[in-house]
Amino acid sequence: MPLVKLFGSILIIISTSLIGFYYGGKYTDRLSNLIYLEQCFKILETEIVYGANPLPEALTNVYKKGNKKVSFVFKEISDHLKANKNGDLFQSFYSVVGILRNSLSLKDEDIELFLSLGRVLGSSDRKDQEKNFNFLFKQISVLQREAKIEKDKNEKLYKNLGILSGITILIILL
């Protein structure tokens, strides 16, 4: 009987810790994905400002050159663009919002920044595109800083909370 008790207690602690780690991990994910996203934007900027490659091609190149953990989003956009010939780039950007929120743990303000790129991308000459990118880089670094603060604050909190709530349940049950 004590063996079953021990096994049950371990199971409870593991599962609550995992929940804690899952929520805490989201903050780490968001930060690292924002960093990867910035790298992808930098590649896209080079493709446009220096390479002058048309967008569908430029987006595919970002996918190939960037970190696949994030850059697959750009492939999705490129595919959407090629499949739907409705002449609306923003729609193609909008189509990946779900992925950004669920798979990349990005928050609403990050997604809004991403979408703002879809509004201006490709619609002007290279000089103007460069300006837009510079603006974008400034904003994304603000978001990264914020993500870092939140991560430092919350990651440990959630992880500890997970373990501690496991122990609390155990105490109550025993």
Binding site: I48, V49, A52, N53, P54, L55, P56, A58, L81, K85, N86, G87, D88, L89, L121, G122, S123, S124, D125, R126, Q129
Partner: peptide
């Protein structure tokens, strides 16, 4: 606007 986007392949900068 939509036709222009398709013509320029969403990339005005490429046709400067």
């Amino acid at each position: 606007m939509e036709t222009f986007q398709l013509i320029s392949n969403y990339s005005v900068y490429a046709f400067e």
